[in-house]
Computed example of a mutant assay.
Amino acid sequence: MEEELDWRSQSNEDAVVYFMKLYGEEIKRLTFSFVKNWEQAEDITQDVFVTLYTKLDTFRGEAAVRSWIYTIAINRSKDFLRSWHHRKIAFTDKWLPLTAASPTTVEEDVMIQSDNKMLARSVLELPIKYREVVILYYYNQFSLKEISEMTGIGEGTLKTRLIRGRNKLQDIYCRNGGRD
């Protein structure tokens, strides 16, 4: 992952535009993993970067800006899930494939896309406490320590959730017809 440039010498507008280009898509995928709706994920992502713009001057630098942005995104997503509006939404959108591969044949491409979609649907079936840690750890490649700092959950608890989440994910994936 590209590390942040010296954004402190830029205006807030330029810094936020830079962070949006650098992290925008992964933040949108993260928020989608919580809300399971692309339009809501886009709205929350926009809210994350508005918050970043208004709070950029308060960043203390105790962690990487990426971790701070993820923390904002996680909190905004959880706020949405607790909101009245969320309880009234029907979830119909599908998760896009999370990984890119370079298959050698059309048949392999179709199989990989099918497996990716099945895995993504299986991840979305996980309870939120497991889904959160699985996505942050495996897809966004944060360490357990970083996830702990972002979520306020102890590393031991996160490790347990990661193991249980992985086991549940395997069961769900196999139940949905995935290959072992």
Rank of each mutant, 00 (worst) to 15 (best):
M1N: 10
M1T: 09
E4M: 08
D6S: 06
R8N: 08
S9L: 10
Q10M: 15
S11R: 04
N12Y: 08
A15I: 06
A15K: 09
V16N: 07
F19M: 11
M20D: 01
Y23G: 05
Y23D: 08
I27K: 03
K28Y: 02
K28F: 00
L30W: 03
T31F: 00
S33E: 06
S33F: 06
V35K: 03
K36E: 12
W38C: 01
Q40F: 00
A41V: 03
E42S: 13
D43Q: 10
D47I: 05
F49K: 07
F49N: 07
K55G: 01
D57H: 11
G61C: 01
S67F: 01
W68F: 05
W68G: 02
I69M: 11
I69H: 03
I69N: 04
Y70D: 04
T71P: 00
N75C: 02
R76G: 01
D79G: 09
F80D: 00
L81V: 03
R82Q: 11
R82C: 05
S83W: 05
W84R: 13
H86A: 15
K88M: 11
I89V: 13
D93G: 03
W95D: 11
L96N: 13
L96H: 14
P97L: 05
P97H: 06
A101R: 13
A101C: 09
S102A: 09
P103C: 08
D109V: 04
D109I: 04
V110E: 14
V110L: 15
M111V: 10
M111L: 14
M111N: 11
I112E: 09
I112A: 12
Q113P: 00
S114H: 14
S114W: 05
S114M: 09
D115T: 09
M118Q: 11
M118P: 00
R121S: 14
R121N: 15
V123N: 02
V123K: 06
V123H: 04
L124V: 02
L126E: 02
P127G: 02
P127Y: 04
K129F: 03
K129A: 03
Y130A: 00
Y130F: 10
E132T: 14
E132D: 06
V133F: 02
L136F: 05
Y137P: 01
Y138P: 00
N140P: 00
Q141I: 08
Q141Y: 07
K145T: 10
I147T: 01
S148G: 09
E149Q: 12
T151Q: 06
T157S: 10
K159C: 01
I163P: 00
R166S: 12
N167L: 09
L169K: 01
D171I: 08
D171Y: 07
I172W: 05
Y173M: 03
Y173A: 05
C174N: 15
N176A: 12
R179W: 06
D180V: 14
